[in-house]
Design a protein around this nucleic acid. Structure first.
Lengths: 354, 354
DNA sequence: TGCGGCGTAGAAAACGCTTTCTATCGAGCG
DNA sequence: CGCTCGATAGAAAGCGTTTTCTACGCCGCA
């Protein structure tokens, strides 16, 4: 059995209380005593029992990070930023993979509540399904009620049933909508009028906001919906591959395809290549997120950059110490259009265009 | 304050012991009583205090997964497999990002020990630095001493100071060496004699094993080291980019480049393209791991497949229930050579070849 | 010399659960 | 009809910490 506080106390010839005080350093202890204690700790390889500590002090040092898909670098980069920020504190920052399942998201929140987590960070878009939303708000409220701080990273702020912002909840909110608007605007400026869009899961806020930005840009340009088909995907490469096929079926004269994220755009690129179509000669392609591999795509991918690492780091700081949260509880994160080689001017219209 | 067991007991008109028994279902309770308890639980939104439970039962349901780089899909895919496997149990499976830092690896192990984790899975190669190895063995021993089961996924088995395998430690061991040998063998068979290699961090077992397989294949073919330069990288795309430049400087007649993993190979592809070299016309390129994006690379990437999801899932099952571990404590995972378009026969030797 | 105060240490009561041990109540059996 | 046994429930003792209260010297000051 592992050594316990009492063992250390006995070995150092002091009381358990003193050992606790030496270890936590929140009470004056004579230097000589402290030294004996430290020695005993080292000799016994003592490690405090986190559960007992959490119970007695009714506070823990567990920070939970929820992500939709742990194999997706989008989340990896954010999570890595968060863990970076909290690395200094003596904190156990852990990431939980919901696999995009609303049910698993709730289950993890419950488990973290059970563990009396110090804070939890929810990354990526939220489901907008009303049922799930309510359950989520309820879980989050319970969580903050136990003293945990909740940070939404890449997710719009969440308000309670009374439409008041939830106390103890901070949002680090990506400007998805405007980024998408500018991206599609860029394509329009290049002369594109037949622009397909591969969106993400329909209920996810990220999909909705990006799509809405895209539609806004189309509307601004007075473009019809018929020439600009939309398919629903899953933010993965397979969605990009099959999506682009479907888009071309719906509008064979397509000159541009926008992916809801870089990964889908990458899949689209692959499919277009397989069909012998040149990018951007025949079709322009754009993504969203600016993940590192956007530079390895062929051609390099036009996209919208989100400062993911930075956003993660900030979220981590908020999780560590809610006092840093700006008034209003929302920190907007700006996005930036990055133009690379996968988008170009529309080719001289072929006979099929109208 | 959150509801506690006693509150539920009071509301249901039973003793705390009974509530505990209903919730854990390990003791006969009359159906009618159980129903009243469940109702009280629902009304109060009661969630057991995990810390108190862990303390009283001296066991927890936390499973820690350590990864080197959470933004690297290699680890994401494994972690996702693990979480898949344990999703059924009422278990909190969490991943911790060491950022390839030996120190952080140890720190996380200590934190998990403090939390009396049920099990911990270490993914990816280990550092072979003797100092770190000893510290690691020591931490792991302490961990198993507290009753935790330790699984090494993609890491060779670890033995103690007495060279005995550590009890309570299971290895799900990738056959990196043989995979690498076959991969380079494939290039040799295509006629390549000038083969550069971009390895990973020098001290990491994964790098060492793959490199050793590569060298073995070279030796089998009687190839000289001079024509087959090696550069050290970091298993990331940047290493691939800069690495291939360095390799070409060392041997301008290079006809093939092998990356220590797919990501480095991807970076190499990008750099070669930037230099106007054709793949595989001028230079063949190969990777390792067969991550999903290997199909999106241009050209598609020849690589060695490791069944990562499967290995992760198996590791998760072992973590959940050590009884499933095969005798010997080691499960070897076979790898498979996947030949795609990035490798081809060596071109007719130019005048520079000798 | 006496006393307040400071610096240090211990005793003991939580913290919220699990689990052993004990108690009660009927039913079944001889 | 008395006894045993099975089914069910409660009392209470931990689990390993933290933290409040108390206690003990000893110094400085009057």
């Amino acid at each position: 059995m592992a050594a316990k506080l009492a063992d250390v106390a006995r070995r150092a010839g002091v009381s358990p209380a003193t050992v606790s005080r030496v270890l936590n350093g929140n009470y004056p202890v004579a230097r000589s005593t402290a030294e004996r204690v430290h020695q005993a700790v080292a000799e016994l390889q003592y490690v405090v029992n986190g559960n007992a500590r959490a119970l007695a002090a009714s506070s823990s040092d567990l920070i939970g990070i929820l992500v939709h898909d742990i194999a997706d670098p989008f989340f990896g980069v954010i999570a890595s930023g968060i863990q970076d920020a909290v690395a200094e504190g003596d904190v156990l920052a852990v990431v939980c993979n919901t696999g995009s399942s609303a049910e698993r998201e709730l289950r993890y929140l419950k488990l973290l509540r059970r563990q009396r987590a110090h804070a939890v960070v929810l990354t990526g878009g939220s489901s907008n399904d009303p049922g799930h939303r309510d359950a989520l708000v309820s879980q989050i409220s319970e969580l903050t009620a136990t003293g945990a701080h909740v940070v939404l990273c890449g997710r719009p702020p969440l308000s309670g049933p009374d439409n008041e912002p939830l106390p103890g909840v901070t949002a680090v909110d990506f400007d998805n909508r405007d980024g998408a608007r500018r991206l599609t605007g860029h394509l329009v400026a290049l002369g594109h009028r037949d622009i397909g869009y591969i969106t993400g899961p329909e209920h996810r806020t990220t999909s909705q906001l990006r799509l809405s930005g895209h539609l806004q840009a189309l509307a601004d340009a007075g473009l019809s919906g018929e020439r600009c088909p939309i398919v629903v995907g899953n933010f993965d490469r397979e969605s990009g591959r099959t999506g682009v096929g479907e888009l071309l079926r719906r509008n064979p004269d397509l000159t541009a395809v926008v992916g809801g994220n870089d990964i889908a755009a990458l899949g689209a690129l692959t499919e277009l290549r397989a069909r012998g179509m040149d990018v951007p000669g025949d079709v322009s392609v754009a993504g969203f997120d600016d993940l590192p591999f956007a530079l390895d795509a062929v051609p390099t991918l036009t996209t919208v950059r989100i400062p993911l690492t930075e956003a993660g780091r900030t979220s981590g700081l908020f999780a560590l110490d809610p006092a840093r949260v700006p008034a209003g509880g929302v920190l907007p994160i700006r996005t930036e259009l990055i133009v690379r080689d996968s988008t170009g001017p529309v080719a001289a219209p072929g006979p099929g265009a109208r």
